[in-house]
Structure formats: C-alpha cells, structure tokens
Simulated scan of single mutants.
Amino acid sequence: MTFRMRAARLEDLEALYEMAKLTGGGFTNLPPDRAALGVKLERAAAAFAREGDTLEDEQFVLVLENSATGDVRGTCQIFTQVGQQWPFYSYRMTTLTQHSQELDRTVRAEMLSLTTDLEGSSEVGGLFLHPGERAGGLGLLLARSRYLFIAMHRARFADRVIAELRGIIDDRGGSPFWDGVAGRFFGMSFQEADYFNAINGNQFIADLMPKHPVYIAMLQDSARSVIGLPHPTGRAAMRMLENEGFAAEGYVDIFDGGPTMIARTDRVKSIKEAKPANVAAIGLEKGERALVATGTLADFRACYGARQFSEDGAVSIDSRAADVLDVTPGDTVWSVER
C-alpha cells in the first residue's frame, strides 16, 4: 500500500470525525464534533485558497490518504500564528530562590506562572494516525510532511514554531494535573473543560483562572508527578520533535500539564534541509530514501520515495513516488532525507 499526504478538503469531514472519536480525549485540535471540525475545514479551505505571501492568522489541515483506495487514515494541522483570535495561554515553570541568614538556609520554590509568552508562534499539532495504520513509518510521514509544507510556504509562517504534546490522562479519561490545579477553580471535569475549549476557545481561562503563580510544592503528588510529561502514546512524538531540533523550555499545557516543545523555524531539521529541484528523470531503482513533496497550498502532496541528485542540481525519483505525487519530468519537487 502507498500513502500520500495532501491538503484536506471539505468532504473529508466524516473521515476526520470518525478518527476524532478514537483519540481518547485530550486532543483539543481534533474534537469529536462535526460542527467544530467543519469550521476547521472551512478555515483551512480559506487558507489554502489565499494566494498572498504574508503571515496571517491561518490554519492548514493535511490528511494521510491511501492512494489506492482514497481512504483517509490520518491527519495533522499547522497554525501559522497562535494567540490572535484569543490569548494563547501556557504555564511556565519558574524557580524562586530565597535565603534566610538567621537560619542559614536557602529555599528554592518551583512555581507555575500563567503566561502568553508563546503568542505569535506557528504551531504544529492535531496529529493523529488511525490505530490500524501505526506501522511502516506513517507517523513520521504525517509529522515531517508539515515541515516540508512550511519550507515550501515559508513566508506564511512565524520565526518560532511550537508543538504541544498531550499530557498524562488516567484510565477514566481524566487529568491528574487538571484535577490538582485548574479544576479547583472551574467546577468542571477535565473532559468538560477540554471539550469546551475545543469548541468555544479558551476565553473562559482568562475569565476564571487565578493570575497568581501556583506553588508546585502545594499540589498533591498526583498532579506534581505529571508536570511536563507526555502521554505514553506521545513519547515517540516527543523523540521525533527532539530529533527535529525542538526542546522543552519549561512551558506546559494549562489543561493536562503536557510539555510544549519549541524551536526556531529555520533551524528545524526537515525545514533547514529541504531542497527544491526540477525532476530530471523518473524510474530511479536505487537511491536515497526521502520524503518528497510537490504542489502549492491546496495542491500540496507528499509521500515517501527515492531520490538522486545530479551534478546540475536536478533530481531523479522512483516511479511509485512519481505516480503517487502525479509528477512528470520538468516538475518541481521538494525533498528531505528520510
């Protein structure tokens, strides 16, 4: 089977809804709500249709498609500039050091401070791969195709990019972090708050969240122990982000305490190393394994393939990738080593 990434379309709504029901909660960017998903697809359609080359507040949705059957088996999203419609809140872990000469004792208190430091960043998120397809490197194709898209449309993205990883969710679908921190002020469960945020935005956080720092030592053990930890299913995603140059810098999600990874956009490995080239020949039998992409905006598509550069900078690719991407000699493709 051969898979390709492509721009999402309005008719992908039902496929996205069916996948959203499989997430298990905590996926704010992929809520199991047809109306909310429809708004996302409409917003993405407007972003794909805009031809300007400037940074605006936009959202792109990509899907993973079985090129033989047309079935949608995964999705991911890219936000060009977060925190424009409403504040983009995070907790930042900080340390306050105090010293008593009388006691000859130094105390370091770790705190969580509510912040909007990351406003204006681009964000990669909403990544979900159908449980039946979690093999063959498809998760890597989903994740890295976003960076090829950014490289191919660089002017429409910010100079910093972030990725929020889902935090620890317990067996009942709750969040120990939410129960120990924000849940005390909102009178609603994690599932209720997560769903409300996905559908209505997070202005309610600004309205009700206390603005003073939270001393971590005063939290119950169950909440303290999960701060900055990714959900077990997100550990591989965290390693992939680290391999791309992302790092955890002390920011965590206000809902579940999961880590926020941060990178300079032009230093992300798959963006920095992405190369455009004209296709010189098709039918390469042996070559370097790569991610190959072509098309702009709504015509974007990407897949795994093989490539080989010639001395003049042109590239040859394998027949399967050419078929999946629908490219012919003379077309331009972008690629990065797999």
Rank of each mutant, 00 (worst) to 15 (best):
T2E: 14
T2M: 14
F3D: 03
R9C: 10
A20D: 00
G24R: 05
L41W: 08
R50T: 09
L62C: 02
V72H: 03
V72R: 02
Q84P: 00
M93P: 10
Q98F: 04
A109F: 11
A109H: 09
M111E: 14
L118G: 03
S122F: 02
L129E: 05
H130D: 13
G132H: 05
E133D: 13
G136N: 07
G139F: 05
L142A: 06
H153E: 13
R156D: 11
I162E: 01
L165Q: 06
R166K: 12
I169R: 08
G173A: 06
W178R: 02
W178L: 04
G183M: 08
F190E: 04
D207G: 04
K211L: 12
Y215P: 06
A217T: 10
Q220D: 13
Q220H: 13
A223N: 11
N243E: 15
G245W: 00
A247V: 09
D253I: 07
F255T: 02
T265E: 04
D266I: 03
S270T: 10
N278Y: 10
V279N: 01
L284A: 04
G287P: 02
A290I: 02
V292Y: 02
T296M: 12
A298S: 13
C303S: 14
Y304P: 00
Y304C: 04
G305F: 01
D312G: 06
A321T: 06
D326A: 06
W334T: 09
S335P: 08
S335Q: 11
V336H: 04
E337T: 14
